[in-house]
């Protein structure tokens, strides 16, 4: 989807439109999304203001904010938006672009969680909790948290010692290699 105008420089707003099929200019800044956001209290910048930053071309400020990473993807905002702008989907695209562009996000434990989760799927085709927890702990050195719940889960037989593996390894490998960021 190239621009219609020859002088038009491809912007982050264009990237977002390509990934989400919706125009960021739809938002008229009523703020209903931020009012109902369950994690707004933890964010450095309100969700509607991330949209505003993109609208005005302050791309770096938007992409390096913690807000998109704290978004829990609950979609309360998307459900309530009077303009039917899917803000949760917009946040997905902002996160994806931040990774693509190598933007340093302040607190990156959440990024490390997602990396660890996806690495299990890449290896086995399915999630494996022990592998996920081990990899996440190694990446973050956050070793003490959850020491209380893990033994309980082991006793109750909820953690599999050996991962379930998908047989068609090639299709999983192809999915990851063909969708990998250049």
């Amino acid at each position: 989807m190239s621009s219609h105008n020859h002088n038009h420089v491809h912007t982050v707003a264009d990237d977002i439109k390509e990934k989400t099929f919706q125009d960021v200019s739809l938002c008229y800044q009523c703020g209903k999304c931020s009012a109902g956001c369950p994690v707004r209290y933890y964010m450095d910048i309100a969700p509607n203001k991330i949209v505003r930053l993109i609208q005005l071309g302050f791309y770096e400020e938007a992409l390096k904010s913690e807000t998109p990473w704290l978004c829990a993807g609950c979609m309360t905002c998307s459900t309530r938006c009077p303009q039917e702008f899917d803000l949760a989907k917009f946040m997905d695209a902002v996160r994806e672009l931040a990774l693509e562009k190598g933007v340093k996000v302040n607190k990156n434990h959440i990024v490390k969680f997602h990396e660890s989760f996806l690495n299990q799927i890449k290896r086995f085709g399915r999630s494996w909790e022990i592998g996920l927890i081990a990899e996440y702990k190694l990446k973050t050195l956050d070793l003490m948290q959850d020491v209380d719940s893990a033994p309980d889960m082991l006793i109750k037989g909820k953690l599999e010692m050996i991962p379930h593996k998908v047989k068609d390894k090639k299709s999983v490998k192809n999915i990851f290699s063909r969708t990998a960021k250049k």
Binding site: G73, R95, F117, L118, I121, G125, S127, V166, K167, I175
Partner: peptide, 25 residues
């Protein structure tokens, strides 16, 4: 038979093509 993970939260918040490919498989 031989289903894969749907990609869950981690795929769709970091790579929309990966997320859709895992689910559609």
């Amino acid at each position: 038979q031989d289903w894969t993970c749907c990609g869950a939260t981690s795929a769709h918040v970091t790579n929309h093509l990966l997320a859709n490919s895992l689910s559609m498989r």
